[in-house]
């Protein structure tokens, strides 16, 4: 019953966001039916477009899980974008540097991405737990550092520049490639890894003592401490896991789709993760559906652009509006209370 109510509120919030988006669409001189039709067609109309939706949902699921695991511990990881970059780069590095047998090579690359991402989460986690540094500022700052660092790595003149003109590394060994799930599309096995990881995060959070401690710290830090939870260690763990998840996402994206690190590989998947994690109300299984919604918006946005009915960035505006309404849980309760009061008032008058 509670779940149904939650789902209802999320559904209403999403619709309200899209509704305000429709007003902006119309106000800027675009056809609302055309935009929403192309949005739906671009995301779902055939198997290739749906594969595109799933392909874009994959990294968003990773970054959503990254955001929500920190959020469950009462922390904010808003630097998933940088963790995605640094994880992606080091996965590619392992991919073109080592020579290993097929499956082993792939696993090593994924672990490399996860580990370096984890390191990128460890720094703000440690700074928060031991030095009291605001993690939402430090994750953001380190995100810029990671992006600039990887940009330099692959820029002409940088140490790992491997393209002729383009800012990218050389191609990874074929043994490190994450295979495609569907021929003729860019959808890779990364999707299945993401699903499995979502289940693992769910299991960790709700079925293990460590996960319970993590949530306890997120709910009431002082109470958790009295209860014998090591708050500092739990906070660090949460941020490391957040970094690992985003780093793994970057690795899967690079190994599965681009097969070499390129700076333009993310249109903002790290930011989408904040949205995904929030729409999912920080639940790992909910994140699967939230990531699908975000992926569909991205894929549909490309369709809107292709059809020429509106610039694709309109979709980002829609996304922002959806988030804005999803994060205001009191909105509908407030409306409900107001209606009750009005009804009571009406009765008193008659």
């Amino acid at each position: 019953m509670r779940l149904l109510r939650e789902l209802g509120i999320i559904g209403l919030s999403v619709s309200l966001g899209l509704g305000v988006g429709a007003i902006i669409t119309a106000a800027t001189g675009h056809s609302v039916p055309a935009v929403f039709r192309e949005l739906a067609l671009g995301a779902f109309s055939d198997v290739y477009r749906f594969a595109n939706t799933l392909m874009r949902a994959t990294p968003i699921l990773f970054t959503s899980l990254s955001f929500l695991i920190a959020f469950r511990a009462g922390l904010f990881n808003i630097g998933a974008e940088g963790q995605l970059f640094i994880g992606g780069f080091f996965a590619a590095w392992a991919g073109f540097t080592f020579s290993l047998p097929p499956v082993l090579h792939l696993v090593v690359c994924l672990l490399f991405g996860a580990a370096v991402g984890g390191l990128w989460g460890f720094i703000p986690g440690w700074l928060r737990a031991r030095r009291g540094a605001n993690e939402f500022v430090t994750t953001m700052m380190l995100s810029y550092v990671a992006i600039l660092l990887t940009q330099w790595f692959v820029s002409p003149g940088g140490p790992f520049h491997g393209g002729r003109m383009a800012a990218r590394t050389v191609r990874i060994e074929s043994t490190a490639e994450l295979p495609r799930l569907l021929a003729g599309t860019q959808l890779s096995w990364g999707l299945l890894i993401a699903f499995i990881v979502a289940l693992l995060v769910w299991y960790f959070l709700f079925r293990t003592p460590r996960g319970y401690e993590l949530r306890a710290v997120g709910q009431r830090e002082t109470a958790a401490e009295y209860g014998g939870v090591n708050v500092a260690r739990t906070q660090i763990l949460a941020m490391v896991l957040a970094g690992v998840l985003a780093g793994l996402g970057g690795a899967a994206e690079i190994l599965g789709i681009h097969r070499g690190f390129t700076v333009g590989f993310s249109p903002g998947y790290g930011w989408d993760g904040i949205a995904g994690g929030l729409i999912a109300r920080a639940h790992p299984i909910g994140a699967v559906f939230a990531a699908l919604l975000m992926g569909a918006l991205r894929a549909g946005g490309a369709g809107v652009d292709r059809a020429g009915v509106a610039p694709r960035d309109l979709v980002e505006v829609l996304q922002g509006l959806v988030i804005l309404f999803v994060v205001a849980p009191e909105l509908f309760r407030l409306v409900g209370r107001w209606r009750l009061r009005r009804r009571a008032h009406g009765r008193a008058q008659s």
Binding site: V317, Q319, G320, L321, V327, P329
Partner: peptide, 20 residues
């Protein structure tokens, strides 16, 4: 009034404006 989490509401503003 809506008792949204402050950081989250701010992040939403950032994402919305970046898109705009």
């Amino acid at each position: 009034y809506l008792r949204a989490n402050h950081v989250v509401a701010g992040a939403a503003v950032n994402i919305l404006v970046a898109g705009l």
